[in-house]
Design a binder for these strands. Structure first.
Lengths: 200, 200
DNA sequence: TTGTAATTTCAAAAATTCCTGAAACTCCAG
DNA sequence: CTGGAGTTTCAGGAATTTTTGAAATTACAA
């Protein structure tokens, strides 16, 4: 590994963390190197900085591309591929979240939907299905919220995040102005605290 | 594996997903079994339902306990430990998020803080530090937002989530009312779109 | 105490994933 | 075409993780 000390510490850490996320050490380190780099790097430069073999780097870059986490660039008069991360960190976060959702929650959602279609044969299956239905509803709520955040402009998103729990106060304020409209909904409409609710 | 068909499909799927998350197949399946179970189960019952060896189940349960994802129970006149997941799905989501944060983002945050304290020796380190600072700020924003959501009651949280992007409209409304106040801030205060910002 | 049921630990086998060098492939300039 | 720079694929060795059975430990009843 051939990097200035601070960068090296960061890259090493990202390698470790890589294994806690779905990606592996190699991929984590490669990404960290690109993230810190002051310009796009070609595969050999990445080899030099990380100390990984050429083929390992190639694999890692392919993986990162499949995650849409790196951008491919070219230089005039140079046939080599150059790789870079987006400058805008929010863009990175957005693709990261999108990809993790695609890999970690979407498959579960579709399995749940499928299993909820099936008729419950046994008593135990009926209970299991009730439990799955709860999970399905919760995930639906979270993903549809996410879908709306995703659509939002970064500035506004940041504004919302900075506001934090104070959004609650803004809401209360709104309620006070337009109270009648909001209060019309059932109070437990979204919360659904009852655990078993067999409307099979 | 000894389970009714629908449950079996669910448990198998959770096993697969387990490996995409930090946990492994065994732990994923054990958790799924407990999640679907109509009552708390002891280790032998989990063995029977999953088909894993007794010791493997013991390991898995220990892991789940370290994640705070299972609750230990006892029956009068029975020395065995019984395990269950919380009935309230929101409680599960809360601990899941809390634990993942603890394992996946907190360590990074502290490494970043540490590296940002160091003086940048080289030119390259200075650039790397600027990049790290961006990342640090973004993670801080996200985690402090999370901390506030965490503190919120489930009902209110669900209300907020259901509202989705309509919160944005409330913001717009607020802006229109108090426009002058909000506009006083620097326009790029939170977003920080400029990539290089060397204030080392 | 002693005996026994329940659980945990541990070393090593089994399975999986990672990493590499060599070979194959692609693409372009001459 | 041919040569060669750049890249990818791939089989198999290295490293890591998972899983297990046997042994050790714990906790309690008699």
């Amino acid at each position: 590994m051939n990097l200035p000390p601070l960068s090296q510490a960061f890259v090493l850490h990202f390698g470790e963390m890589g294994s806690r996320w779905g990606i592996n050490r190699t991929v984590g380190q490669i990404y960290a190197v690109l993230f810190l780099a002051e310009r796009a790097l070609n595969a050999d430069e990445i080899c030099e900085r990380t100390g990984f073999s050429r083929s390992n780097v190639s694999m890692g870059l392919k993986e990162l591309q499949s995650w849409n986490l790196v951008r491919l660039q070219h230089r005039p008069g140079d046939r080599r591929d150059y790789f870079a991360t987006p400058d805008d960190l929010w863009a990175i976060v957005r693709t990261l979240v999108a990809e993790r959702k695609k890999r970690e929650v979407d498959p579960t959602l579709s399995v749940l939907r499928e299993l909820l279609m099936q008729p419950a044969a046994t008593e135990a299956d009926a209970h299991a299905q009730a439990r799955m239905r709860e999970m399905h509803e919760l995930i639906e709520l979270l993903t549809s919220w996410y879908a709306e955040m995703e659509r939002m402009e970064t500035d506004r998103l940041v504004q919302l995040l900075s506001l934090g729990a104070r959004v609650g106060q803004v809401l209360e304020f709104k309620d006070r102005l337009f109270g009648a409209v909001t209060r019309k909904r059932e109070p437990d409409d979204g919360a659904r605290p009852r655990p078993t609710d067999e409307e099979a």
